[in-house]
Amino acid sequence: MITLRKTIPGLSLLALLSVWQVLATCLNSNNLPTPLIVGSVFWHGCLSGQIPFHLGVTLLRLVVSFSIAMLLGCAIGIVLGRNKKLDAFFDNWLVIFLNIPALVTIILCYVWFGLTEVAAILAVVINKLPNVIVTIREGARTLDQDLLEMASSYRFDKRKTLLHVVWPQLYPYIMGATRSGLALVWKIILVVELLGRSNGMGYQLHLFFQLFDVANILAYTIAFVAFIQLLELLVLKPLDTKAQRWRR
């Protein structure tokens, strides 16, 4: 029974590839190349160094902007979650920033700061930051007051309280923000690169769009999605398992 359950994701992926293969064969069009053709394009892109280079550039932007957004978002989220006056003051700001379309932020950043790397990173951070703040703020609001009192009565210093009392309670919220953040940030980065950078996945996708090169578009997409999946399997899931081991 367990073996069958473990094979289900693999079988499902195989089924998706089969449907794709059948559709592509039936249509017989350059607009939907077969998985084999995309695989071949992907392989050659890897060998030529093009995919690793542009994927690397995009990933670097992702790491930098995601890290800044998460660090700032966690800090601000905790402060707003614990301070009602500040929360009341900044709540409207958050709602406004949450509802500004990503494209507007990107355009404004490029207009105000030029077509630079800093403007690109800033645009991604501004887009992601409100989401992280809102998620972490919710977590900070639900912190267990009893445990905080215990920490206070036993004279835990700020570092010890943050590390051993606050952080574990915020962990599910941080993981939620991380997962949704990764999914959101890389999509924004592609737009940022498409509009104002001369390298990265977004730039390449724009190029292939102009050439109607669907095989390359799919090859680059698969490369990125595969990377995020690997990150989930090799980093996030093991982290989750380790952090949740105290639960029944």
Binding site: M150, Y154, H164, V165, P168, W246
Partner: peptide
């Protein structure tokens, strides 16, 4: 130095028995 045993034990669920004591 004040020890406080609350009505509810208020142990950190993500720390073992020994770690809860050591942290205090």
């Amino acid at each position: 130095k004040i020890g406080y045993v609350f009505q509810n034990p208020r142990l950190l669920p993500w720390r073992t028995v020994r770690e809860n004591i050591e942290l205090a």
